[in-house]
Amino acid sequence: MRVSRLYVAMPLVLHETIELDEDSAHYLRTVLRLKKTQTITLFNGEGGEYQGKVVEVSRKRVLIELLSFTNRSVESGLHVILGLGVSRGDRMDFSVQKSVELGIAKITPLQTERCVVQLKAEKGQNKVRHWQKIAQHATEQSGRTFRPTVEAVENIEAWVKQQTGLKLFLDPFATRTLKQLQPEGRQVTLLAGPEGGFSEQEREMAKQAGFIPVQMGPRILRTETAALTAITAVQVLWGDLGREDAE
Rank of each mutant, 00 (worst) to 15 (best):
M10T: 14
F94E: 08
A246P: 04
V13C: 11
Q201Y: 11
V62T: 12
E75S: 08
Q38Y: 03
E49T: 00
V160R: 03
Q187N: 04
G185R: 10
V31G: 06
R243T: 10
A9P: 00
P172S: 02
E56Q: 14
H137V: 02
F146A: 12
G197M: 03
K133M: 14
M205K: 12
V96K: 06
F43R: 00
W131V: 00
L82E: 12
L14P: 06
H79C: 02
P148A: 00
W159G: 05
S199H: 08
P109T: 02
V96E: 05
V8M: 00
A158T: 15
G124P: 04
Q125I: 07
G124E: 02
E157S: 14
V96L: 10
S87L: 08
T149W: 01
G210S: 06
A105D: 08
I212T: 12
N126P: 09
L14W: 07
A121E: 15
T223K: 03
V153G: 03
E19C: 07
T145S: 02
K98D: 11
Q125M: 13
V86I: 13
V128R: 12
T39H: 08
G193F: 09
G196D: 11
G52N: 01
L119R: 09
T37S: 09
G193E: 12
S68R: 14
P11E: 08
I64T: 05
Y27Q: 09
E22K: 13
Q215T: 10
S24F: 04
G165H: 07
N126F: 10
G193L: 10
P148T: 00
L102C: 10
S76D: 05
T223V: 04
R129M: 15
F173D: 13
L166R: 04
L190E: 03
E151A: 14
L191D: 00
N44S: 02
Q235V: 04
R72N: 10
I156G: 09
E49G: 02
L228R: 02
K60E: 15
A209M: 05
V57C: 08
P11G: 11
E75N: 08
L237I: 00
N71H: 07
Q201W: 12
P109S: 07
L82N: 13
K167N: 09
L102D: 02
S76T: 04
G85C: 04
L170H: 06
N71R: 10
A121K: 15
T149I: 03
T189H: 14
M216P: 01
S95Y: 11
L63G: 00
G239L: 00
E224V: 05
L102E: 07
T37Y: 07
H79S: 08
G239F: 04
D90C: 08
G239A: 07
G83A: 00
I64Q: 01
Q235H: 05
L82K: 10
M1C: 07
R29Q: 14
T232D: 08
L191V: 00
P109D: 02
L6N: 03
S68H: 12
S95F: 12
L78M: 13
A206W: 01
V55Q: 10
L110D: 07
R33W: 00
G197A: 09
E224M: 04
H137L: 11
T177R: 13
H79A: 05
